[in-house]
């Protein structure tokens, strides 16, 4: 089993319970929800097989749904996020040749590119989750506030995790 696969399994086993037990209760001002588990999806290797990526994305969302009693909400959003991962990545990085089997991290793709990539992915995910929940209760002001605050809060934590877990010399693409 490759080092990347082991890292992803460890991340899954840590991030999912952490999201359920800790981050779900770390809601600021009742609007900013840190959806930190998407770090797993954001840092999936870009060259990973599409079907396998989608399966990992779906299972990650499903696990969160089971633990958070949000049936289908995170499973749907995670699957779509995994699907748009490559197009978003290529918005900021022109070629993935140098990234073979590597995870998109500040160390591998450069801090600036990672910030843009992670920021976009986080905003997309938060918008999707709160849009899906808005099918049940819709309040435009609250929706926009939640998307904005949760995106910023999640992004800050994700960047902190990325810096802490993958220190090393930065490579610019």
């Amino acid at each position: 089993m490759s080092k990347t696969a082991i890292t992803l399994i460890i991340l899954f086993l840590i991030l999912i319970p952490a999201q359920a037990v800790f981050f779900n209760n770390l809601v600021l001002f009742n609007v900013a929800v840190p959806l930190v588990f998407i770090y797993l999806i954001i840092t999936l290797p870009i060259t990973l097989n599409d079907s396998l990526s989608l399966t990992i994305g779906f299972l990650t969302g499903l696990a969160i749904d089971i633990l958070s009693d949000t049936p289908g909400v995170n499973a749907l959003a995670s699957t779509i996020l995994t699907f748009v991962r490559k197009p978003v990545f290529h918005l900021y990085v022109s070629s993935d040749i140098d990234l073979a089997d590597q995870r998109p991290l500040p160390r591998t793709m450069g801090t600036a590119a990672f910030l843009k990539y992670a920021g976009t992915m986080t905003a997309i995910y938060c918008a999707m989750v709160f849009a899906i929940e808005a099918f049940q209760i819709f309040n435009l002001e609250l929706f926009l506030l939640r998307v904005a605050c949760s995106s910023v809060f999640t992004f800050v934590i994700i960047y902190a995790i990325a810096c802490l877990t993958s220190p090393g010399r930065e490579k610019r693409l």
Partner: peptide, 20 residues
Amino acid sequence: YCKWVVLLFYVALSCIMLFQ
């Protein structure tokens, strides 16, 4: 079109859970 089939399958599964 494998990835589209997989995507549609998971989206359909999620929607079933969502709309129950």
